[in-house]
Design a protein around this nucleic acid. Structure first.
Lengths: 239, 239
DNA sequence: GCTCGCATTTCGTGATCACAATAGCATTGA
DNA sequence: TCAATGCTATTGTGATCACGAAATGCGAGC
């Protein structure tokens, strides 16, 4: 209907900076504990520090970044308690989004989910964890978007964003989880096809709890014994 | 322990602007639909537009304000669907916070809650809805803070902030609710004293759902029939 | 070899300015 | 009387600069 619109009204610089930083966060460009300096990021993006400042503070307000006492933005370094809390909140919000989405599901959406799952098994045997996790994420967010609950969707995205850097570091470990776990999405889809939204929501909640418990067991967190009191206490010993 | 610290290191202007705007939002200084212009607020606060811009965008990132296509910040005007969604999210998060708080409760906290409830009944008969609602809020947040879950607490505060302006307009109506409703906090406290955290959480959830349903029934929302397509569609006919 | 202290650099904050886009609003025309 | 139109004031964006504080790196001394 609408024309191709040859001048797509370029978004403000702050918006561009925000999106680039956000994607970099999800893609693991930054490691937990990294400091994001205004002028450094600004020169890297080719703008003045001004839009970068706005973007960084916006991400901080969304809990995707932390701000030190001196005002510098740093990539969050999750403690064990913080990660557990994050799992609890996810376990409360994401099944809610799923329940809200159930009445809105149509055949086309279910088919799209099916196709995502089909490709899923393929990428799993291949050695690309990023693709594997991306499909996982797409499966869930396809459902969450159907809830048509913008406030809730924004909160869930914020949670995933905060978890992003840690997930990136743990991506190899996540791939090595038992295959039974990988089929949980199939069970969710099956429950949705059967119209049992409540069961699907329960499946999702246990999946979130299992994944959280798995990472709590396998990963070193900030503040753990054996982790340096200052340096990067996560997967890799140093960098 | 810490000294009186005669120079309490005044917070940055952005932080001051943020707090003042936040409080004004809770206290109903602004009505839903009001436009908050950078320079207007800046001159009102006696600063340059710069800290105000940061504060407004921060509130917008927390979903406490909306941003129009032209970048102007406006006080959110909730639709019926948005308010219902807000209630659903509250019903998911706040009982969770309560459950997390249960293991941390001690006698002193329970006593403080008791005293809040005692003063509650008094303010209820008096004609001051603001005080009544403030005590209500304090009761719940005293519990939520005990959960020691900063992420969750921040999200709950964000939800209350978004609901703030509407609640302010509806404050007289909220006071007129059946007295039975007012005793729900007492029931929660009783369940907590008995160590039945699950029951307390259930009570809280039904309280949130009842309050949401009550307002959905009694209040005019944005987009309702009979509300002007543009103007302030809320309680007062115009201004 | 290690630690402490100082100087230099870099940082975030906030003000001011230029600019383009927007929103109000009075005027004009039907 | 009402709607379309043009102008004007105001808006948000973004760049640049000044300032004080924090962090960094280097050198001297133990």
């Amino acid at each position: 209907m609408n024309s191709p619109d040859p001048s797509p009204e370029p978004p403000p610089l702050e918006e561009q900076a925000y999106r680039r930083l956000r994607q970099a966060l999800v893609e693991g460009t930054f490691a937990p504990g990294d400091k994001l300096s205004l002028r450094r990021v600004a020169t890297a993006l080719g703008t003045s520090p001004m839009p970068v400042r706005a973007a960084l503070r916006r991400l901080a307000a969304e809990q995707a970044l932390d701000i030190t006492a001196s005002g510098t933005a740093i990539v969050p370094r999750l403690t064990r308690a913080a990660f557990l809390e994050l799992g609890e909140v996810r376990a409360a919000l994401e099944p809610l989004a799923l329940r809200l989405a159930v009445p809105q599901l149509d055949a086309a959406t279910l088919e799209a989910l099916e196709q995502l799952l089909a490709g899923h098994a393929g990428t799993r045997t291949g050695g690309k964890p990023e693709e594997f996790l991306r499909v996982d994420r797409e499966f869930l967010f396809t459902l969450y978007r159907r809830a048509e609950a913008p406030l809730l969707l924004g909160m869930i995205e914020s949670l995933w964003l905060r978890r992003g850097p840690l997930f990136w570091e743990a991506r190899w470990m996540l791939m090595s989880r038992p295959a039974e776990q990988a089929h949980r999405h199939a069970q969710i889809l099956e429950a949705l096809r059967a119209g049992e939204g409540a069961r699907a929501a329960e499946e999702l909640e246990t999946e979130i709890r299992d994944a959280t418990a798995f990472l709590l067991k396998e990963i070193r967190f900030a503040g753990d014994a054996g982790a340096g009191p200052e340096g990067l206490p996560l997967l890799r010993p140093n960098r």
